[in-house]
Design a binder for these strands. Sequence first.
RNA 1: GCCCUCAUGAUGGAAUUGGUAGACAUAACGGACUUAAAAUCCGUGGCCUCUUUUGGCGUGCAGGUUCAAGUCCUGCUGAGGGCACCA
Length: 861
Amino acid sequence: MIPHRPYQAKNIEKKWQNIWEKNNVFETSPNNNKKNYYVLEMFPYPSGKIHMGHVRVYTLGDVLARYKRAKGFNVLHPMGWDAFGMPAENAAFENKVHPAIWTKKNIDNMREQLKAMGLSYDWQLEFSTCDPLYIECQQKIFLDFYKNNLAYRKEAWANWDPIDQTVLSNEQVIDGKGWRSGAKVERRKLPQWFFKITEFADELIDSLDKLDNWSNQVKVMQKNWIGRSEGLKLKFKISDNSVLPKNTDFIEVYTTRPDTIFGASFIAIAPDHPLSKDLANNNKDLQKFIFECNQIGTSEEALEKAEKKGFNTKIQVHHPFVEGEYLPVYIANFVLMSYGTGAIFGVPAHDQRDLDFANKLNLPIKSVVESQNAEDNNISNIAYTGNGKIINSNFLNGMNIIEAKKHIIKIAEEKSIGKKSKQFRLHDWCASRQRYWGCPVPIILCNDCGIVPVPNSQLPVLLPNDVTFDKPGNPLDYHEKWNTIDCPECGRSAKRETQTFDTFVDSSWYALRYPAPKSKDPIDKKQMLQWCPPDQYVGGIEHAILHLLYSRFFNRALKKTNYVDFDEPFKGLFCQGMVCHKTYKGPNGWLEPEEIFFKDNKAFQKSDLQEVEIGRSEKMSKSKKNIVDPMSIIETYGADTARLFMLSDSPPERDLDWSISGVDGCWKYLKKIWSHLHNYSFNNNDEGLLLKAKEQDNSIRREIHLCIQATTENIESFRYNSAVASIRKLSNILLAYKSNTEEAIKEQIILEGWKSFLIMMAPITPHITAELWKLIDKDSSFLDQPWPSVDKNLLKDKKLVIAVQINGKLKNTIEIEQVEANDKELQKNKALALYNIKNAIINNTPKKIIVIPGKVINIVI
RNA sequence: GCCCUCAUGAUGGAAUUGGUAGACAUAACGGACUUAAAAUCCGUGGCCUCUUUUGGCGUGCAGGUUCAAGUCCUGCUGAGGGCACCA
């Protein structure tokens, strides 16, 4: 036997990457004979180097792109950079390097790392969001939004991140803390730029149902986030408004339970309701109360268990439907100004918070919904919120809740004291940031003309290069030369808007840019229509709300401003799980996997041999030090091994547990295939011989084609782990033929098997398969090999194995010929003739015998 | 509190419409080769009983539907995630 070359992943991977690049094989070109398919993975922030999360998501996308290509699609598979954002400014501050230079260096480095993974991108379409052309296009889009009332500037309370020194959108505040910095968010009043996302609130919820190829989890999360509720806005007339500082005649409340209006026993308004503020002007006690409420409001822990507190304003309102009945007005700490009207009517019997409040302040509790279950109706500490019949409610009596709601809304509207109303949790998107490294908002602020858009001829508004980061805050504010400009309308001296866009603006429309990234038009209609929206988008679940909701808004706004003609930005959405790793904690804190060795299932520190605590598997993070650097894996094992491991075990949507033994196993497997194929000498391709295959040989062919079927189905439905399993099963069958046989037909079948194997394995491990293909077929181009098709005639075996059960439990099996598959009687008789079945029914006459022909026989005794 | 998802060997997981549970891997163990180790190759493997055959039990728990349930229904427990004084 001639010794073959050992499997040196690094060399062959570099070799094929160079060949692909030199020949531009992944270049996107128009092809009218093929259907277009656009695969997009979420583009990365150029932090400097790739992490395992990148390896996973880009491998998933690449498998799909390469598979679709083999399936005969014309594939668009691009990559770019989400290049603006805070870390560049932090680096500028720490290392005295300009954000632009830092970012470019990082991009160059990460591009090389991604190339080392062997991803099938058309790199000619690459762009980054800090490119002047992208900035110009985005500014044009923004100005169109502004002119169409989809963006506005408003002085508003904002979430202020004291560490990042910028405002945050509601979506970026998590548990009262900044999403990036983790700092406790403060409230500040500032002029801000908003996008009118609430204009599409209904549509953003309703069309979720049409997104069949979106992950359900994301749809549910978006629905909750938008948070639609339907109810009634209702006015309560104030009985004596002479005590009020201004002429306030009524208080307007919002409710989703107008059916319970006859059970109302008080009105409560928010501490920062305008009326509360008016009353507080000359009331020291109330000022103190409001201050206390605001204190609690910021600490989330306290909020959880916070006691209900109320301040009696001594004001009374008329009950709108009961002549002569009055309700007291309280200021209450559990009522939020940011939802509804900032005022409620309290129905203690049917709302838990109202009940807690009423119990505290000794307010009356009046039941108006009667449950069928008597014990529900005795209300002391638990409010009844279920279904029932309306009672004690005058003209609503006897109705069910739905009827009563409809009826009372109708009456309130007729009396002009109320209006059917929808409320959303979603607020407009605050999209401006007090930062340097972002796309400038193209606006000029003039003392005389107000807000003036930068004229098209002056676009793009680029960032000045000569800035320093030694002072806190926004360098653009200090840059007089840049921010002073003549007003384009009146010519007098004015100021530029110094805020820049949230980076989520950049990522809200980048997918539309790839088909024509160099076009002067923000979105090249002709190119875009051929490809967009992307057929499949792949990315992390952490963007379920932020990026994916903003993109859905942006796409609708782009439709309204005539840039696109479709509603949804992504046809299909797939969210992959996180990459996790066990954590190790030594006596002096967290340890990296590299610092550990194992003995007898215990972990020890290499440095001092002390035992180390093995923690549960968690998302790879710097703070827990459970990070594995992808480049070191690619260096030692190769990209094909890393890719194979990423896909092997866990289903893509679940978390993946990184283990070095798993990686090792994948590497050994590739090595085994490598040496096996090098030791085998393949005959020339002669498919005619396959037709002459004998019955016995066809059983191998059957396995091959079953595998093709399974693998294809698994890839189509994103079950990549199962696809790997079925491919490995095929290779286990083929590996059993260790050396060449003398039979030409059999050799031809094995050739067919290995060819199918390599083509199906190619999307997963593209380099090694390309190299091995040359052993089988020197002349044809591997990348152009079509995906193998299933010969359905081969799938059916001549013999069928059928289960024989007694009372549903497997007892034995029978074997029948394929042609007998529908012969119920024959199968039944064969089953009853079995030795242990005969024994079992000797004393128990079968009550019933169920024969599912070709599948199972169940004997009921 | 509300909403969503999940629960299968030592471990990751498979079982697409209810029809032979544990595919494919990882770790483990036994054997071959080796002075030895690594690598490689061969083999074992849900649990219990038995020498073996056979048999019994088994997909978080308790019920139900069905000839037949990992899969469908009801209730519970546990884990993960989302939202949250949202009227």
